[in-house]
Amino acid sequence: MAFDVTPLPYADTALEPAVSANTLSFHHGKHHKAYIDKMNAAIEGTDLADKPMEEIIAAARGTNQGLFNNAAQSWNHGFYWHSLAEDGGTPTDELKSMIDSAFGSTEELLKQLQDRGAGHFASGWVWLAVKDGALTIEETHDGDTLADKDGVLPLLVIDLWEHAYYLDHQNARPAYLKAVTEGGKLNWGFAAENLARGTTWTYPA
């Protein structure tokens, strides 16, 4: 089984001005595809060839860094495309209650996502997740992922790698984070689906 790049769930102009069609053409069409192609090549003919991507990530963690990086980055990108939307809407009542309990308000959550994302050194990812029954902001470095982490349920993620924002915002990561979070591009419907399901999203086979 070979994996494919997940199709964008919106037009390539849908995230502007936070993320331009030009950025998506490189980020989705080239970066994500490169991770997928390298992972597919690495698992071909092995006992991982027919496994779900989440199992490949778990098997490669700590044992095969090259495969882990490409599989985890493939999963993270698939999750990231769904974490964004042209009109992300607003949190459901259940999510809003959890946000208020953990952060005081949606505005404070967005501020903390911006602050944690801007403060993350070098490349990585900033996540909204559920841990121990409460919302939390998590960070993973470089290609690391929450896809195979027990006890943590990812709801949304924002890519902090420079290729996610450099064509639009140059080195101003805070401007990108502000545009995504305050510009209505976080997909609260996707977050609600992940919360309701209660199990980690799976990359489509």
Rank of each mutant, 00 (worst) to 15 (best):
F3Q: 07
V5P: 06
P7F: 08
L8M: 14
A11L: 10
T13D: 15
V19G: 07
V19Y: 02
H27P: 04
H28S: 06
K33E: 13
Y35H: 15
M39I: 06
M39V: 00
A41G: 11
G45D: 05
T46M: 13
E54D: 14
I57W: 03
I57D: 10
A58Q: 08
A60P: 04
G62M: 01
T63W: 13
T63L: 11
T63A: 15
Q65Y: 11
S74Y: 02
F79K: 00
Y80V: 09
L84M: 14
T90A: 12
T90H: 00
P91V: 13
E94M: 03
L95F: 10
S97Q: 13
S101V: 09
A102T: 06
F103W: 11
G104Q: 11
T106Q: 09
E107H: 13
E108C: 07
L110Y: 15
Q114N: 14
A118G: 05
G119N: 14
A122M: 13
G133A: 00
E138A: 11
E139I: 14
H141T: 12
H141N: 03
D142I: 02
A147D: 02
Y165E: 02
Y166F: 07
L167M: 15
N171R: 03
P174L: 01
N187H: 12
G189T: 11
A191W: 04
A196Y: 04
W201G: 02
T202E: 14
